[in-house]
Amino acid sequence: MLHPPGAAGGAAQGAQLPVGPPTSAELRAIIVEPAAHAGSTVAPELVATVVAEAADQPGALPLVAHALRETWHRGSGPVLHLDDYRATGGMRGAVAQTAEAAYAFEPPARQALMRAVFLRLTMLGEGTEDTRRPVPRTELDGLEAPEAPALAGAYSGSASDASPDGGADDVAALLHRLAAARLIVLADGTVEVAHEAVIRAWPRLRRWLTEDRDALRVHRRLSSAAQQWDELARDGGALYRGAQLTTAQTWSREHGTALNELEHDFLTASTTAHRPPPGAAGSGTHHTPPAPVHRHAGRPARPLPHRGHDRMGPVPKQRTTTAQCAFRTADLPVTAARRTVDCSTRGQS
């Protein structure tokens, strides 16, 4: 990381030091000295251009660092030139250009996955700017690329880069490429955006964050509720019901592929727990309501597990009708086993 002169000592000791916009003299040192340590030089006209663009600009340092790094990658010799700097998009455009190139490289299904990842990595500001949101790597478990046919020639990556089944391989491959492009940072089991500059300077991400703000808030509340449910050993009392459940179900019909594993389990358990049993008044007896949790069109919802394999222990043997069985198992939490409860044969004599 680049530090203004005078800040390096405090940074080395782990201190949090307020750093204002760098002066012109500090910017020159920030631009020239790291290049000199790497055996390179910066053309005088490039130094003058960067200083003019960045002087007295809050938040300029990460933009300058990214632009100069991309300038170095474009060059073929020991001198960093102004033409290469301008080709990167400069201080204002280099981050956006890098992000757009990463987005264009992915097949269409992974582009949707990339959108889901960056939305999770952004903290929604309420009256303030959006900022980075570090998340545990496990929060991305279960994210899947939508099942859509790849459009030949629509992206610059190889079709072999896309896993036809999506899943963990898609997420891992995407994160690896985003980290290589220095758009995200992977460390200590966490994932986060490399800097707020990515959030503020990439127009596509800004559009994602503003086009449906209410839907993003619904997802954040759902994610928080699912985490709490899991921390409470998946207690049935922590499940969604009423208006909260209806709102989450409506959201999932349009954004189901943005659900991770835990959120999917939570919403499925909430829906099942509060679905009227077959034969109940107003529920109807001649059809089964469609699954409310939509991850992929045409893919059936994951079945509930057999109670006997749940952490709460086996079900006592008793005479059970189909309607009674469905009612009693309605509040079962979803576990990794996901075996279907067979109410047609259990407990009948």
Score class of each variant (00 low, 15 high):
124 L>W: 08
113 L>Y: 07
90 G>W: 00
310 D>I: 01
83 D>S: 11
339 R>Q: 12
302 R>N: 03
191 V>E: 11
49 T>V: 02
142 G>D: 14
3 H>Y: 10
15 A>M: 14
325 C>N: 11
173 A>D: 15
57 Q>G: 00
41 T>Y: 01
259 L>R: 12
290 P>F: 10
120 R>Q: 11
115 R>V: 02
347 G>E: 07
182 R>Y: 11
159 A>M: 09
191 V>G: 00
307 R>M: 11
346 R>M: 04
235 D>G: 07
224 S>P: 00
315 V>F: 04
156 S>R: 15
65 A>S: 08
248 A>N: 03
188 D>S: 01
164 P>A: 14
237 G>A: 13
80 L>P: 04
329 T>D: 11
100 E>F: 08
197 A>T: 13
40 S>T: 12
213 R>N: 08
188 D>W: 15
120 R>C: 03
158 S>K: 15
72 W>H: 12
234 R>P: 06
18 P>S: 03
61 L>W: 04
84 D>Y: 00
319 R>T: 07
62 P>G: 04
118 F>G: 05
299 R>V: 15
64 V>R: 00
188 D>E: 10
349 S>N: 08
147 E>W: 07
14 G>M: 06
95 V>E: 08
82 L>Q: 03
129 E>V: 12
40 S>G: 07
37 H>I: 08
214 D>K: 10
340 T>R: 14
256 G>S: 14
62 P>Q: 05
86 R>G: 03
342 D>H: 12
150 A>M: 09
3 H>I: 00
292 P>F: 13
322 T>G: 02
198 V>L: 10
239 L>K: 09
313 G>P: 12
226 A>I: 01
172 A>H: 09
196 E>F: 07
17 L>G: 01
43 A>F: 00
119 L>N: 10
10 G>M: 03
233 A>I: 06
97 Q>G: 07
8 A>N: 00
245 L>T: 12
144 E>D: 13
214 D>I: 04
73 H>F: 14
144 E>C: 09
139 E>V: 02
278 P>R: 14
71 T>H: 11
295 R>F: 13
285 T>V: 06
11 A>W: 13
138 T>W: 07
245 L>C: 11
243 A>S: 09
345 T>F: 02
154 A>T: 10
